[in-house]
Design a protein around this nucleic acid. Structure first.
Length: 281
DNA sequence: AAGCCATCCAACCGCAATATC
DNA sequence: AGATATTGCGGTTGGATGGCT
């Protein structure tokens, strides 16, 4: 039988949006709010499919969009987040207020990729290109190859989802669709970020003793310090190499994102990798 | 001025995840 | 529990634009 089409293809416009269509969509969402994308076009008097309306709103019409050129800070942050998260554009976008996943993806493909290539860095692996061509752990090196190492070297998403807890989420009153996830211990091998990640849910009663010990050891160290993302300013954390942070800031600009402290997430005081707060759009 | 090419980016498509019945 | 509906994500496409010959 299969899935029914998302909309009536025969009677929907495609291609560029007109000013009139934009106005209709904006005024409808202003008075009714976002959501119910499937029924929205008919209610708003638009001959578009719901997906198209959603995309137009999220990527172009939303009032909180920043637009304009990316700053150098945003540039750096995108590179660092991409090295950690891979092509998870929506996750990266959550760390760049006012930017959309589509915008970041386009920017990556048109600017950042080329910039990294010019520097001799493989944008897929974030490693020097000649090193990418000759993996360190080749069979000749005597080390055994295993899929996990391959995954780490590729710098795709480092996170392995193990389990979801829908019921627990409902009980806890979480309204977003994110799943509670448990992540594997990974040995970070990024050349400029020395990470030892133990990522697990922020449920204190489930934290392993070792994790708690790390928490006490590192709770006064800022994210930038732990992640090797220092911003060059003086830092107030316990680590002598650490940089200045603004832990009170809940709304932050792209320039202070990489140096602001979140709550401890599996021994990582971080907003950069505070996955539990990453809202899916 | 015309043609070609490269670049940019809005929009589309397919699919997976999630929600609902 | 399974079928269907809806939403959201990531990859890709194609039109608009500008630079160069």
């Amino acid at each position: 039988m299969g899935r029914s089409p998302c909309c009536e293809k025969d009677h929907t416009n495609k291609g560029a949006w007109t000013k009139e269509e934009d106005d209709k969509l904006i005024s409808y969402i202003k008075s009714h709010g976002e959501g119910c994308w499937r029924s929205l076009p008919r209610s708003a008097g638009l001959q578009r499919c719901g997906k198209s309306c959603r995309l137009r709103w999220i990527n172009y019409l939303r009032p909180d969009l920043k637009r304009g050129n990316f700053t150098l800070d945003e540039d750096d942050l995108i590179i660092k987040l991409h090295s950690l998260l891979g092509n998870k554009w929506s996750l990266i976008a959550t760390r760049l207020p006012g930017r959309t996943d589509n915008e970041i993806k386009n920017y990556w493909n048109t600017h950042v990729k080329r910039k990294l290539l010019r520097r001799g860095i493989d944008p897929a692996t974030h490693r020097p290109i000649n090193e990418t061509k000759a993996p360190r752990d080749s069979p000749e090196s005597g080390k055994t190859e295993d899929p996990f190492n391959v995954k780490l070297l590729s710098f795709g998403p480092l996170l392995e989802k193990k389990e979801s807890f829908k019921d627990e989420r409902k009980q806890s009153g979480l309204i977003c669709k994110k799943e509670r996830v448990e992540y594997s211990v990974v040995e970070e091998r990024c050349f400029d970020l020395n990470l030892e990640l133990r990522i697990s849910p922020p449920w204190q009663d489930q934290l392993h003793d070792e994790t708690n010990m790390r928490f006490h050891r590192e709770k006064h160290m800022c994210t930038a310090c732990r992640f090797g993302l220092g911003n060059g300013k003086e830092c107030s954390c316990d680590n002598v190499k650490c940089q200045t942070v603004d832990s009170s800031s809940s709304s932050y600009s792209s320039s202070d994102i990489s140096s602001s402290i979140g709550y401890d997430f599996l021994g990582l005081n971080t907003r950069v990798l505070d996955l539990s707060t990453l809202e899916m759009k």
